[in-house]
């Protein structure tokens, strides 16, 4: 799966997360494997409820539910981190893996100044003095493009706009020079112009800091802009994994076709945008076979059996259609002639 020249920063193997509830067992993540190389950006894409956020939180030990059961392996810089205690995880969280959240409006503690919150993280992971940490916080705020950082360091979160607050969250995530940055839908809660600015900022900072990034999104546009590699998730399972360029130009799974068809593109004449019929499966009713089968227009008898990830080189997919069928049907979907 991994290009041979880079050793992975993070490697998840067959990660499974399930919650036992009154209604039955919810398999939120069901056999997810992927790797993130150095300075690489991996995009994880899927609808809400597809398990992408749960997978990330589980990797960091942030899934705190008495009824959760977790299996598989997650290696960070060669070290197994799944099942580490809170105390063991603490230097990794915030120190080596930074996190950016979906809603910047609620991600910061409302009663503390933003500078205080950045200093708090710096002092948890480094030996900086208060003055040094404050100076670093001002520097970070400047780097993420907050005007007049020397003054704004003493502002409270509610005194910032959504986009500016997300910049603060990014500054905080980057404060300890993390090897890996996990961004959970970092632009979803922002308006369109701010979205682009935040994505640009992340790309620029990645160059400066040399971090790897995992970006979670439901927006293929964000993937196309940011990701080197893509994991498409559906109902907790990987549907397609591969380099961004392959997945976008040569998508193999009907679900990916639907996602791509739903993005308007310039230069491509379509009658209408493709849609994916039906709703995402509820996590309690994931079918035995292919999870996407109930919504798939090309469902076959084989689909009652769960397809394994297969494909060539590092572009894998989980669909029973033959390569020839895929090429033919995909064309029709993406031209908007039929629904995925």
């Amino acid at each position: 799966m991994l290009s041979p020249e880079s050793t992975p920063i993070l490697e998840a193997t067959d990660l499974k997360v399930s919650f036992s509830t009154r209604g039955g067992i919810i398999r939120a993540v069901d056999g997810l494997s992927f790797a993130v190389g150095a300075k690489e950006t991996v995009g994880i894409v899927g609808e809400s409820g597809s398990g992408k956020s749960v997978a990330m939180y589980t990797m960091l030990g942030l899934t705190r539910d008495a009824n959760v059961s977790i299996s598989g392996s997650v290696r960070f810089q060669g070290q197994e981190i799944l099942g580490l205690s809170d105390t063991q995880m603490r230097p990794i969280r915030g120190g080596q893996i930074g996190m950016i959240f979906q809603d910047p409006m609620t991600a910061l503690t409302p009663v503390y100044k933003v500078g205080w919150q950045i200093v708090e993280q710096l002092r948890a992971h480094t030996d900086l003095t208060k003055q040094q940490a404050r100076a670093r916080a001002i520097e970070l705020l400047g780097e993420v493009g907050i005007p007049d950082p020397g003054r704004r360091v003493d502002s409270y979160p509610h005194e910032f706009s959504g986009g500016m607050r997300q910049r603060v969250v990014i500054a905080m995530a980057l404060s300890c020079n993390p090897k890996l940055l996990i961004a959970d839908e970092p632009t979803t809660a922002l308006d369109v112009t701010t979205q682009a600015q935040i994505l640009d900022l992340m790309t620029r900072l990645q160059e400066n800091y040399g971090s790897s990034i995992i970006i979670i999104t439901h927006d293929m546009g964000v993937i196309a802009e940011m990701a080197d590699r893509v994991v498409v998730m559906y109902a907790g399972r990987p549907a397609e994994i591969g380099p961004e360029i392959d997945v976008v130009r040569n998508p193999q799974h009907p679900y990916t076709w639907g996602l791509l068809g739903a993005v308007p593109r310039t230069g491509v004449r379509t009658e209408r945008l493709a849609t994916i019929p039906g709703n995402a499966v509820t996590p309690l009713n994931v079918p035995e076979g292919c999870a996407f089968a109930p919504r798939c227009s090309f469902v076959m008898d084989q689909c009652a059996t769960r397809p394994a990830l297969h494909g060539d080189a590092d572009h894998l997919n989980a669909c029973w259609l033959s390569p020839a069928q895929k090429v033919e049907l995909r064309g029709k979907v993406l031209r908007g002639e039929i629904d995925a």
Binding site: L60, I92, F101, T109
Partner: peptide, 17 residues
Amino acid sequence: NEDYIRTARAKGLSERR
């Protein structure tokens, strides 16, 4: 259950703090 507590955890703070 608030988001900012999740942020605090992701920052690597101790449960006590």
